[in-house]
Structures are given as structure tokens and as C-alpha cells.
Computed example of a mutant assay.
Amino acid sequence: MSTTTALPAAGNGSQAPATAAPGTLRGDPRGRERAAWLLAAVVVLVLLTGTSLAVGARDVPLGTVWQALTAFDPLNGDHAVVHARIPRTVLGLLAGGALGLAGAAMQGVARNPLADPGIIGVNAGAALAVVAGIYLFGVTTFTGHIWFAFTGAAAAAIVVYLIASLGREGATPVKLALAGAALSAGLSSLMNVILVSSQDTLDRFRFWQVGGIAGRDWSVLLPGLPFVAAGALVVLLAGRTLNSLALGDDVARGLGQRVGLSRAVVALGVVLLCGTATALAGPIGFVGLVVPHAVRFLAGPDYRWILPLSLVAAPALLLGADIVGRVVLLPGEIPAGIMTALIGAPVFVWLVRRGKGAGL
């Protein structure tokens, strides 16, 4: 994995100054274009949300969906189907938004356009913690998975940051990437040792490992809401910080940034978002990698726009993948984690070949 140490001019050749007025059209000459993309993403997300409530093994007309939401009749079978799909749709919105924000922030912290939250060992830490919870404590519920996965993700991120901070230069992007890759390999090996030694643990774990948003209810979603909200707040407020970090550590220090502290705060937001999303929906790949890349291709390198656009576009991708997975193999379905890989991989290859989305 390669990293860049400065803000390249790849793509449209523009870079947003860290001192520009945040989020205003006056300080951002491309503000109207970016606002139009954000509005379009919101419209697409609303449409996909409605489609998620309507489409499945039993299709429901959109008019009936609206009636089920505004005037629920418990004796109406279509209304019951719509209400059964609400937790699944809400989870798609939460997990997708969390993964999109986490991916965009991680690429900014690591200054690596091919980075995703897995670079700091979040997914590996969450997976090992879930396996340990199943093997040692017999955890079988999704609510139990939440706490183990979140704890594992946070612990892995802290260990990676501490290892990368050793030495005179501190936690540089290269050291973060190397420490994250090494820890991920080690944690994955430990997880495989447990899985090989316990068939029962393997049987329970494999359903979570695939990644998906089906089969969850409010008892799973509600415990994760505070973590997602806190992580989203931390990351969304870090747009100007990420712009400064993208210019390089020396320039960021010259602009008054405390580079180590800034990276630690943003990394905390990433852990909250990605750890909770992984706990709720399993290790869903490509969402945190492809969406920020596509957003950067459309809106440029300014993180004050990349972050909110990723927050909206990522759940649209996850819901779209889930909807396709419901209908391609009726009466069965393909988990969303598999569909995001099938959809995201060719899109990512196209973006990289175009070249404009590859630079930070």
C-alpha cells in the first residue's frame, strides 16, 4: 500500500485552502456545483429508502408504503411487511452513513487514497472480539456482538496508534499503514486459531462475518445510535482539520494544527463509526473505500464537502446493494455485504483508471 505525503493536484488540479470560509459559496467558487451534487444525492437516498420499504419477496406499492407509515393498520398484511422492513432500512442508513464518513476521514488522516477503516485494524479487532465473545462467553445475540465488536475495534485502533507513535516523527501516515496492516494480520491469525478449534463458534460467526442488514430489529439498532451520533459529530466537525492535514504535517503545523492530537481525535471518530457499523451489520467492505473516492471525483478535495456527501452517498450505495440482493435470487436473497463487493469493485477499478479520484 502506498501513501502520499502531500496534497497532489491530481484530478481537477484544485485544492481548497484551509482558511476558506467553511461551507459558504463566497469562500468556495465551486460551492453551487457541490451543493447541487449534495441535493441530488439526498434525492437518490430518499428514493432508495422508499424502494427499500417496498421491494422484496413481497412487493408493496409505494402508495401502500405511505399509508403504512402514516395510518398503520395492524390487520393489513402489506402494512405489516412495510413495518418489518423499517429496521432493516434504518440500519442501512446508519451503517452506510457511518462507513462512508469513516472511510473519508480515514483517507484524510492517512493521506492514502486507497485507505479504508481497515487500515487501523478496526475490522480485524472487531471480528476477533466477536469470535472471543462467542467462544468464551457464548454470546449469540446481535446486541452482545455490538459491545464486543466496539471494544475490539477501539482497542485495535489504540494499539495501532501507540505503535505508530513510537519514534521521533510520531504517527506518520506510513507508520499508521504499516502498523495497521501488521496488527490486522496478527489479529486475523488469532481469530482463525479460535475458529479452527471450535466448530460451534465457526457456525455462529460465519453468519455475522458475511455482512448484511437483514434480520436486525430495534433491540440491535438502539444501542448503536449514541456511538454513531457521537462519531458522526466528531468527523463532520473535522473538515477543516483534514484539509490542513492533507497539505502535509509541516504545513499543518504552520497553520496552527496540533497534528498528533488532530489525528487522534479524527481516529476516535472513525473508531466510533466503523466499530459500531461493523458490530451492527458485520464487516461490509468497499463502502468506505469507493464512496469517498467517487465523491472526491465529483466534488474535489475539500473535506468540508467530501464528508457530508459521503454521509449521504454511502447509505444510498448500501441500500441499493441490499435492494438488488433481495430480488436477484428470489425467493432467497444475497447479503448486502456480498453485493457491495460485487458493485463496488468494478466501480472502484473504473475510478482508479480514470485517475481523477485517485489523489488526495
Rank of each mutant, 00 (worst) to 15 (best):
L237A: 15
A232C: 10
Y135M: 08
V130I: 13
A6I: 08
P331N: 02
S197E: 12
L307N: 06
A185F: 05
W147V: 12
L75K: 06
R58N: 14
P223S: 00
G92A: 01
G359F: 11
V193H: 09
L176N: 01
A40N: 10
R32Y: 04
P117E: 08
L247V: 05
R88H: 05
Q15H: 04
P292Y: 02
I284E: 11
L242M: 07
V327L: 12
I158C: 04
R111I: 05
A153G: 15
G256N: 03
F348G: 08
V295L: 04
V109Y: 05
P17L: 01
M191D: 06
P22E: 15
A179I: 03
L62T: 13
L351D: 07
L247F: 10
F227N: 08
G320F: 09
R263I: 07
R253P: 10
A281Q: 00
D249E: 14
V174Q: 08
R240E: 09
A313N: 08
G50D: 14
H79Y: 06
G231I: 02
A57I: 14
G96F: 00
G269P: 06
A341S: 15
L289W: 01
G186M: 11
L242N: 09
S184N: 04
R204M: 07
V55L: 15
V347F: 13
L330I: 06
G77V: 13
I163S: 02
D322R: 13
V139W: 10
G254T: 08
M106W: 03
L202G: 04
L317V: 03
R32D: 10
A129L: 04
A181L: 14
S2I: 02
M106N: 04
G332A: 15
G211Q: 05
V81D: 09
E333C: 00
T24I: 02
F72K: 07
I119G: 08
H83K: 09
A238Y: 02
L309T: 10
L93D: 11
W350H: 11
T140D: 13
Y161G: 08
V60W: 14
G355H: 12
N192R: 08
L53Y: 11
A9M: 11
V43D: 07
G359R: 09
V270H: 00
L62E: 11
A105M: 06
I306Q: 13
I213C: 03
G248V: 03
L247H: 07
T276D: 03
P113G: 11
P335C: 01
A104K: 09
F286T: 00
G212Y: 02
F297H: 13
D73A: 10
G256L: 05
M191C: 10
R253G: 11
R30H: 13
P226M: 07
Q199F: 07
D250T: 14
T143L: 11
A95E: 05
V82H: 07
V265Q: 06
T19H: 14
G50W: 14
G77H: 15
V328G: 03
A358I: 13
D322Q: 13
V220N: 14
P29H: 12
A10H: 04
G300M: 10
A345F: 02
V290E: 00
K175F: 05
L233D: 02
A294H: 01
V295F: 05
A299E: 02
G180L: 06
